[in-house]
Design a binder for these strands. Structure first.
Lengths: 222, 222
DNA sequence: ACCTGAACACCGTTCAAGT
DNA sequence: ACCTGAACACCGTTCAAGT
């Protein structure tokens, strides 16, 4: 991005070439299967050559996540009203992470970089322009990230459940239904829970968050 | 829990003994450093002995997470008003996970078990008793999980950042402040953001969620 | 200076062999 | 039946040796 295209004379590889290769590996086999060795072999270099650019596998991953965020392009156009702007931003993040679920486990352990900051920046600026206080805007941003990350986590665990057990997935609903009295309610709850598990997770938390923000803004204005 | 204490005649070990040992290892070195080999060596058994009880490392982890949830004891007393009940449940989950941050990466990839279902059950029952619809209660539960998981994720990534760079952590605020005009605002924003990063993450998303639930219930009642 | 190959200390898991 | 040891195919990372 900020032009670090210094090509090494012996290998012909820049730092960004490694990131590119890492993203290729991730796209093909997933973040979890990425290794120093398979990134290096894709570039026909010794694994150790990378350690000059990335002292640790985590550094390579952090750099790759940065590029991933940049390419996800989650910042909506500036002219949208804030409710839509926030919704689009959240869905953009959610969809990007769903495309590459392997990132989710790493979100808590990798350093935040310039691209993550740029998104924070855009979000806070937008809400401040719309009349929210800085404190409210930051709170909204963190809450949004929480909902997005949590939604992706849930989605990926539901995915794991679905692919594991084929026909045995009525275990979960029936248990919940059991404790909730009266026979006629029970089947209804089962169906309801099943539908919740199948639903796009971002549709669950995000509307609640936006509703809360709306009423917060109204309070501040009166 | 449901009494599977069949002690093996040769090793003297039950399934739950392995889970116990796994939890010990987790407490001492963290979930990420748990391996079949170190659990087995703690019990003076060959690593392969475990594969009879747990066909896969993930199965051992799933069983350990079950026990972890059971011991976290996140279900509050039934007589609390729902706002407090929900708040206590959320904080219980948040604190348990913060004590053992290593679980967070796994939450999305491990199968949900009986203990996780028991918590869902308790939550939905409580809200239904308080006048929410089943659909609302399930939505609230999923949203709560999202906030808790997201909050723990954020907390653990902030922790990583803080321990990495000692004095260089004004990079992040200054960048955000940069794009947000006027010199006198900038320093204020920096301070504000820093304080947000230091704050307990659950305090950020949870109040918004509870506010949204409150107004939802009021709407339904009028 | 920068890259390499060999090596170290680990993994999860398979499998034939033991009792 | 159930446990074992050796082995396979991987890891991240270190380090002395090459150019």
């Amino acid at each position: 991005m900020h032009g670090d295209c210094q090509v090494n004379s012996r290998t012909g590889l820049s730092r960004s070439a490694y990131v590119e290769a890492a993203l290729d590996v991730i796209a093909q086999v997933g973040v979890d299967k990425l290794s120093m060795r398979n990134v290096a072999s894709r570039l026909n270099v010794s694994p150790m050559a990378m350690y000059k650019h990335f002292p640790t596998k985590d550094d390579l991953l952090a750099a790759s996540l940065e590029e991933f965020i940049l390419r996800a392009d989650v910042v909506p156009p500036a002219d949208l009203p804030w409710e839509q702007w926030v919704e689009r931003a959240a869905r953009g993040m959610y969809e990007a992470l769903c495309r590459e679920l392997g990132w989710v486990p790493l979100l808590g352990s990798l350093r935040v970089g310039a691209q993550a900051i740029a998104v924070t920046d855009a979000f806070v600026s937008k809400l401040v322009e719309e009349g929210f206080s800085i404190e409210q805007s930051l709170r909204a941003y963190f809450a949004l990230i929480q909902v997005v990350v949590g939604a992706v986590c849930l989605r990926s665990s539901i995915g794991a459940r679905a692919s594991d057990q084929a026909g045995a997935d009525d275990k979960l609903p029936s248990s919940v239904a059991g404790r909730l009295q009266t026979k006629d309610n029970a089947r209804y709850i089962s169906l309801e829970l099943e539908s919740f598990l199948r639903r796009d997770q971002i549709d669950i938390g995000l509307p609640l968050l936006i509703a809360a923000l709306k009423s917060q803004l109204e309070e501040a204005r009166t």
